[in-house]
Write a protein that binds this DNA or RNA. Structure first.
Lengths: 221, 221
DNA sequence: GAGTGTGAACGTCTTCACAGCA
DNA sequence: TGCTGTGAAGACGTTCACACTC
């Protein structure tokens, strides 16, 4: 894995992975005008058990009121702070194909405090075009784009063949976290965090269960 | 009552989630002409420990040769069979926006035996257009598209507001597995498998770690 | 010798049940 | 009374170390 040097995992990794989902639900509750929410209600809204939810939130601190529930607005602020999106958190997105455009226009980012601050591609016919309110710049301008900015997360949505080179360029330009959507395993220096997302994994997992269902149906026939 | 004569070899969920990644690496090895592969080599290629890899594969059966390794082609066949993609596995994709197009054209699907067999959208200006070799049909044609086909997995890439309705239509048309990319929690009947993918989760997890790094740097300064 | 297959140890996550507080 | 916060227990997953096979 990426960093074995994680000395004090104050918040469990499994909890961190659920915080974004909680945040989405909390934003919806806030927009709906809910002042407070009970753990059971929030838990069903995000599809986890209420005990899991309470334990997760307890890792951030005691932000609930016994007998009442959680103050929605306050909880949004606390979870946002924990995730590092209380101030604007900016990312650079490389690879403006269909997936890149989908990510650039993804409502879920802006709504939760994440800003796509720059779009890069190597295709000259794309450079200069406007996508989602931003002008696409050439990937060679990466150092210029990042110098003087507070961007330190890079998102790769290029074809598989270009991903490692783009990743190297991102790291060279000072990015310290990389999110890779290309279906290849990238290598990064130790000081860089890397996460891989394979869009076909979940579909194949479903296929597995589907296959099992079919097998069982046949066995009992 | 389950018949005692059918020993269901339960494969851990964590293992299932890794099989698609193994399959990708194995396909690459097969194309590169490797006849056999050792657990250590395959493990580093996919970013897990060799012990984890061997235990995972052992859940499928004893397909390795001690002192030698695994036969790549044979392993591809076994993992594909376990994932249910040894025969063609077809899915219907609803929502042909940027994300839908990205999924329709995703190399990782076809390469691993998954076929996107139908594209649906509710936008009349999209219906009839050709995307990735398929003609987009109207979402109301769903029952017609699914009747007489072997499709039983539906993929939702619509805006959040339309997702639940589309999901209900998919279920009504006989789909038994749903993969949802829209940022809402869907509800389905018990007999339907549902998996939710939120594209912003991984990015927010990275943001969390970035935030922690920044906090630590400041603390030690 | 080399590398798989696997019980056993270890660590992590989830669930339970209830203490503690408004 | 009602709901949060949390130790304790149990389920699950990973890692280790070595027996076993080619």
């Amino acid at each position: 894995m990426a960093s074995p040097g994680t000395p004090s995992p104050r918040v469990p990794e499994a909890t961190i992975a659920r915080l974004p989902v909680y945040l989405r639900a909390l934003h919806e509750l806030a927009e709906a005008g809910s002042g407070t929410v009970r753990s059971a209600a929030l838990a069903t809204a995000v599809g986890v058990g209420s005990a899991t939810l309470r334990k997760d939130l307890s890792h951030l601190g005691s932000y609930g009121t016994r007998g009442v529930g959680y103050d929605v607005e306050h909880l949004v602020a606390q979870v946002s702070r924990e995730l590092g999106v209380s101030q604007r958190c900016s990312v650079v997105l490389v690879g403006i194909g269909n997936l890149g455009r989908a990510l650039a226009g993804y409502d879920g980012f802006a709504a939760r405090g994440l800003a796509v601050a720059a779009l890069l591609d190597s295709d000259p016919t794309l450079v200069g075009q406007q996508v989602g309110g931003l002008v696409v710049r050439h990937v060679d301008e990466l150092p210029a784009v990042l110098s003087g900015s507070d961007i330190n997360i890079g998102v790769i949505a290029t074809p598989a063949g270009a991903a490692q080179q783009v990743c190297d360029q991102l790291v060279a330009a000072g990015v310290t976290s990389v999110l890779n959507f290309a279906p290849v395993l990238l290598t990064v220096p130790d000081h860089v965090d890397l996460r891989e997302v394979d869009l076909s994994v979940e579909l194949l997992v479903l296929s597995f269960h589907e296959h099992r269902k079919a097998s069982r149906a046949q066995a009992s026939a």
